[in-house]
Computed example of a mutant assay.
Amino acid sequence: MRRHNYKKLQIWNEAMDLIDENYLFTSTLPDYEKYGLRTQMNRCAVSIASNISEGSSKRTNKHFIKYLEDSLGSAYELETQLTVCFRQKFISDEIYLSLENKIQKLQSKISNFIDRLESNQ
């Protein structure tokens, strides 16, 4: 297996864009969430891209897939935290729907990439 250049992967680039948008949103959270949701959401968003890049260094698709699955888990965790923000009325409907849509599209793309790698083993 040849190693993937993570900077050329669409899922990594979209994850990086999601980090930017997430940081913009979390900066608006109440001060009492500075070490709660804000920190958790930022760590999750960074984890999505970080696991993609770390996994791309692995020698086999089997090992890369493990990191992609971790990335996918972080994307689902971020979606849950976003939903908490929505239910607590920390976010407008418009921003919530936009971020949720981007997260769900990224989840789908990561899942599809995993499926393609698994079919090539």
Score class of each variant (00 low, 15 high):
Phe113Ser: 00
Ala45Ser: 15
Gly55Leu: 08
Tyr35Ala: 08
Lys8Phe: 02
Asn42Gln: 15
Val84Thr: 12
Glu54Ser: 02
Ala45Leu: 11
Tyr32Cys: 06
Glu94Asp: 13
Asn120Leu: 15
Lys102Phe: 06
His4Ser: 13
His4Cys: 08
Ile19Asp: 04
Glu33Gly: 00
Thr60Cys: 00
Leu24His: 05
Leu82Gln: 05
Gly55Pro: 00
Lys62His: 06
Ile95Ala: 06
Gln121His: 11
Ser53Gly: 09
Lys58His: 07
Lys7Asp: 03
Asn13Ile: 15
Leu78Asp: 11
Asp17Tyr: 01
Met16Asn: 15
Gln10Leu: 15
Met1Phe: 08
Asn22Gly: 06
Arg87Ile: 12
Pro30Val: 07
Thr60Phe: 04
Asn13Arg: 15
Glu21Leu: 13
Cys44Gly: 05
Gly73His: 02
Thr39Ile: 08
Gln88Phe: 11
Thr83Glu: 14
Gln104Pro: 02
Ala15Val: 06
Lys89His: 09
Thr60Lys: 02
Leu117Lys: 09
Thr28Trp: 01
Asp31Cys: 09
Gln10Met: 10
Thr39Ala: 15
Lys8His: 11
Ile48Ala: 01
Ala45Gly: 05
Arg87Met: 10
Thr60Ser: 14
Leu117Pro: 14
Gln81Gly: 04
Glu100Ser: 15
Leu97Trp: 06
Leu72Asp: 05
Leu78Arg: 02
Gln107Thr: 14
Leu9Pro: 03
Thr26Trp: 07
Arg116Gly: 04
Asp70Gly: 11
Asn5Val: 06
Glu14Asp: 13
Lys34Gln: 14
Leu29Arg: 01
Leu24Tyr: 09
Asn112Pro: 00
Arg59Asn: 12
Leu82His: 02
Asp93Phe: 05
Phe25Gly: 04
Ser53Pro: 01
Thr28Phe: 03
Glu54Pro: 01
Val46Trp: 01
Lys105Met: 10
Ile48Ser: 00
Phe113Arg: 00
Asp31Thr: 14
Gln81Leu: 12
Ser27Lys: 14
Leu18Gln: 02
Glu118Met: 07
Ser92Ala: 06
Lys66Asp: 00
Arg38Tyr: 01
